[in-house]
Design a binder for these strands. Structure first.
Lengths: 249, 249
DNA sequence: TGTGTTAGTGTAGTTGTTACAACTATTTCT
DNA sequence: AGAAATAGTTGTAACAACTACACTAACACA
């Protein structure tokens, strides 16, 4: 890495943290590396960006090559560029996260196919991943938990028809706290962002729940009028207790 | 841009949106370009990242070379990489914003010196800047207005001793809405994040205000205990009116 | 001493948040 | 056919937070 033209002896890649939600669990799609460096470790899907390709395009390409999915939620999060992050040279990477409905999902018959798996996010974060992918995963997970509080992106992870309980479980997984059923329903329904489909679940061994659909048009209407989506319920009383000692000296 | 090794025929730069606050106005530091491309236009300070330099280091370097300041708030925001964003080749840029206290500020006697100026942010956003710097500035400004709602970063823009009115004016500039004096004071003081210095302003032609200092240690204590900083007051009644037509059909 | 200017303060009404438990609809098992 | 199991659905009261709003205090200067 000496000489005048070193500025142009570097490359950039995109890495994509693909989240899905299944069986009450938040999952992330990982690929097992078949070659060095980091052969045998799990890694985030990613690729070098082509010379004539925009960054977002590259991120969509990685996603589509792997999952066959095109129209998904995708967001740039952060760029990682430590000098030594890639063993083979200076490669900075732009990290994205995307949200897919596992119901839509089919692995493409790409060469990787056998080495691609959904992993529970909590477990994946504790495992040793290739490159600096632990940091990238954690950063993207934090970005997701933050985003989900202020934008209704959670719906991107659910099938088109869902029950209020499924929605609540999703939020509980994302926010990592339990929510009160009555308060959650009250709040969500009061936003009038859900369409009541007048359909019931089928094939469940208990009272079937009503099915709902997210009303995207309504959301955009409301957003344009200054509406702000927020899901919280953060047990203020507990906080208050912990803070009392500090604040009231 | 043909041939095998094209992946390594690209470069990356950092661009830094440096915000300051003065005379009730939010400002941004711009450099007038002395050479093509975009000769004569105002641009964000930035530079190519050295081959053995981390991204954050490069952003700090750009800032220090220009202002002489070292310990300032700096945050990565977004990476811009459209294929045609730079007329001379494929150069992606990682955008940062930083917050400086104009009171600390002295321009370094670097070669640029005459061509560096603070610009009102609103006006700068409406002017034609070099490259894609309009988009970068806007993105960073949005990131700042968002960050300022949930973290007490505003204090980075004020001198070490400030009055509550100055603080309020800062927030009004950042949030672009007027705040109620009594409610603002009540809220800020109830957080016990300010140290009352028992000093008064001097040399003002009216009743002098008390001076305060931000209590950083206290903030970190509170943060560790789950405290969340929030400044809003967003005239819910007006919103409600606008929304009523939509929600109550 | 009076005028101009900004600093500083309290309360009541309203809205939003939280905590909490009984009953209902359905399937499965005996 | 009845009982057990499971998850779905619904309201209210206490409390906390937010909003709107107007007068007096302190100082500089003419």
């Amino acid at each position: 890495m000496n000489g005048e033209n070193n500025f142009f002896k570097s490359a950039f890649s995109v890495d994509n943290v693909i989240f899905g939600f299944d069986e009450g669990d938040l999952k992330v799609l990982l690929i097992k590396r078949g070659a060095d460096p980091f052969k045998g470790l799990w890694a985030l899907p990613g690729d070098l960006v082509y010379p004539n390709e925009d960054l977002d395009t590259a991120a969509y390409r990685v996603l589509e090559e792997l999952t066959g999915l095109k129209k998904v939620y995708l967001e740039q999060v952060h760029t990682f560029g430590a000098v030594d992050r890639h063993p083979l040279g200076r490669v900075i990477t732009i990290a994205y996260f995307s949200l897919v409905k596992i119901s839509d999902f089919t692995l493409t018959a790409s060469s990787f196919a056998q080495n691609v798996e959904w992993h529970n996010v909590e477990i994946a974060m504790k495992s040793k991943l290739a490159f600096d992918h632990n940091v990238i995963l954690e950063t993207c997970f934090n970005a997701l938990t933050h985003r989900v509080r202020i934008r209704p992106v959670g719906f991107e992870l659910l099938p088109p028809k869902f029950t209020l309980t499924e929605l609540q479980h999703l939020y509980e997984a994302l926010l990592r706290e339990e929510l009160d059923k009555r308060n959650f329903r009250k709040k969500i329904l009061s936003m009038s962002l859900l369409i009541d489909l007048d359909e019931l679940q089928e094939g469940v061994p208990h009272r079937p729940a009503k099915l709902y659909q997210f009303n995207k048009e309504r959301y955009h209407q409301l957003e344009a009028n200054g509406f702000s989506f927020e899901v919280k319920e953060s047990k203020k009383k507990e906080k208050k207790k912990r803070l009392a000692a500090l604040i009231l000296q």
